[in-house]
Design a protein around this nucleic acid. Structure first.
Lengths: 241, 241
DNA sequence: ACGCGTTGGTAAACGGTGTTTACACCAGAT
DNA sequence: ATCTGGTGTAAACACCGTTTACCAACGCGT
């Protein structure tokens, strides 16, 4: 089973050390402190050695972003494990609350992943998306269950239809890639539209909280978030069938 | 009238040159390119000279942020000038559309102002807020007119009441500071709550667009934005009285 | 008109950064 | 035992923010 040689294992180990050390610096001292020399210093090596693992600093932080997303996905997944599979509404709420909780607990990681203009001069074509996979797989799996009454397909605006078809296909493909059987009739266009609406408002409110860009001081942000969630489930018609 | 001496005028001129050159670098080459040496180089001076104007690089970018906000406010104000004062709904929509248009046209300025964790290690106490003043004054002025039927005060959740009272007071004070007469009964708590809802969803959707963090490729973002706006005015009960 | 202090600028230097190049070294395969 | 490739180092380059010391010119009071 131990296919990897000793060298490969050692390489993988220091590789993990590098990324984890980068994250430690990010969390404790901010994004400007995650520098190649500082990372190498903490690891007891020299900066150029890092180029045996990553082609540039930007390449490193890109992989760190991936790690962050993986952690977030894992946390959401374990959150989800405590919810009965029949209670789809609670599962959705759990994901939303979990995302917010994670973002507030890890503001710098959140900023690095969700407030970076990655597509500005990055890769506009392929979705090597950091977080997209999370939402696709987690939300997709949950919404496979037909225990909710999503907005009917007639309610989704025509202009969005084509995009949502693609989105639906992506979600199904992602879920299928995890080995789960996928009937073809689940996950309607209306459901995909609902997911989009959830994501837009969830992202907006959480980003607003993390960046503290409310137009005034909100003392009870928890309540405001729950109000938003309640409005969201009502607007989406998210009730148990 | 020319109270400022010749020295003061010269100083003010180069000061403007510095900030404008910083913005040019930001727009053309990204935030990491706005460096003291580069700015000085473009201005034909040396880097330490900039310390006669700003105490540090961070101090400079802080002022640049202010400038950006001022420009945004000016653009929104001129947008508003073309709308009859009686048509409050159109004024609101104009602000929302103008904000989005500006953000998409100036993604790097938007990022610098609206996606920076300013409060992370910055000033948590005083609202020397860059953008807050805009929203307070512009939205405040518009909503002074009682030509809309905002949500009744009974509809706003109790937990938000206290915060919204402060918000309302802030808006009134800001508008009053511009010299306008303010009757005490305008700008209800319900209106303040409506402004908050608008800001949350407007910010979220625009940030999502600028950062390209939609879970899938949205081909017609304009339509999606208009759909959001329509839902917003309906939800807020924003109709002409 | 003369000094003189303030002001805006420079040159040099320090420590830090990403990155490249050339070189050592040691493990593992031949 | 020798070759070879992967892992690390040292030195160097160019750039960065920032500080210090110095300089020159401007504006002002006498």
């Amino acid at each position: 089973m131990s296919e990897p040689t000793r060298r490969e294992r050692a390489r993988a180990a220091t590789d993990r050390d590098i990324r984890q050390q980068a994250r430690t610096l990010l969390v404790n001292e901010g994004p400007e402190a995650v520098t190649l020399r500082a990372i190498a210093r903490q690891l007891g090596i020299t900066a150029p050695a890092l180029y045996r693992y990553y082609s540039s600093r930007e390449d490193l932080v890109h992989h760190v972003r991936m790690d962050i997303c993986a952690d977030l996905a894992e946390e959401l997944t374990t959150d989800l494990a405590g919810i009965p599979e029949t209670d789809t509404v609670t599962q959705v709420l759990t994901i939303c609350r979990g995302f917010r909780r994670w973002a507030l607990a890890h503001p710098r990681e959140f900023t690095m992943v969700f407030a970076s203009p990655t597509g500005m001069s990055g890769s506009p074509e392929l979705k090597s998306d950091p977080f997209g996979q999370i939402f696709l797989s987690v939300a997709g799996k949950v919404l496979m269950a037909k225990q909710i009454t999503p907005p009917s397909d007639d309610e989704v605006p025509e202009v969005m239809r084509a995009d949502l078809e693609h989105f639906r296909a992506d979600m199904l493909a992602t879920v299928a890639a995890t080995g789960v059987e996928v009937p073809d009739d689940v996950l309607s266009i209306g459901t995909a539209y609902m997911v989009l609406q959830f994501w837009i408002r969830l992202y907006g409110q959480v980003a607003l909280e993390v960046f503290e860009h409310f137009p005034f001081v909100v003392s009870n942000t928890d309540a405001l978030f729950e109000i938003m969630l309640a409005g969201l489930v009502q607007e989406a018609g998210l009730t148990i069938e």
